[in-house]
Amino acid sequence: MRIGVVTFPGSLDDRDAQRAIRIAGAEPVALWHGDHDLHGVDALVLPGGFSYGDYLRCGAIASLSPIMTEVIDAANKGMPVLGICNGFQMLAEAHLVDGGLIRNDSGTFICRDQRLRVESTSTAWTGGFSTGQEITIPLKNGEGGFIASAETLARLEGEGQVVFRYLDVNPNGSLNDIAGVSNARGNVVGLMPHPEHAVEPGFGPDTPAAMRSGIDGLTFFASVIERSLVGA
């Protein structure tokens, strides 16, 4: 399986996402924001970072990049797309997922290992989890407050499109403790925390078993690979 990672001006975690894909057993393909070419990939990751310096709104200018024409088209045709942090903001700006992200209610940048509950395993990126499973992956954002109109929120909750919820603390004021959502079809998932930073023992969050041994993020990438094998 070949999974594309789009690099935008100001992307930070594109290389980490490529590495996570490789560790999970797929082939990462570096894609460039200025191209109109997905190079025949089977899935896409929009990585974290601070594209265009967060100018205008986080992810807003990147969501208008040339390659986003192809990304939006592929997403609407069912290609698995994962937006992480700034990538989630781009998905929201491109209207591939509902809702929006605003400045953390604390007014500060938050960086911590964050416990989450997996609320939906029927998406392209969460099939390898069990419903209600609790995972820990790093969170690092300044504008991660998820908001949506009451009507949209009710629909997301009712249709099972809330994919991840914050546990222990709500780090950024997100409504209903929402950390990640999917589109109606479940192929597009966006979340603020960073699965790609929890894929390799020695470099992940601490666990009761050992320091920095958390690899809960690996399941995101393993899930989409597994799904492609089943579907093949």
């Binding site: 205008l56 709104r57 807003a60 929201a92 992200l101 908001i147």
Partner: peptide, 9 residues
């Protein structure tokens, strides 16, 4: 369409 995001602004 661009200068604002109607979800938040």
């Amino acid at each position: 369409s661009m200068f604002s995001n109607s979800v938040i602004e």
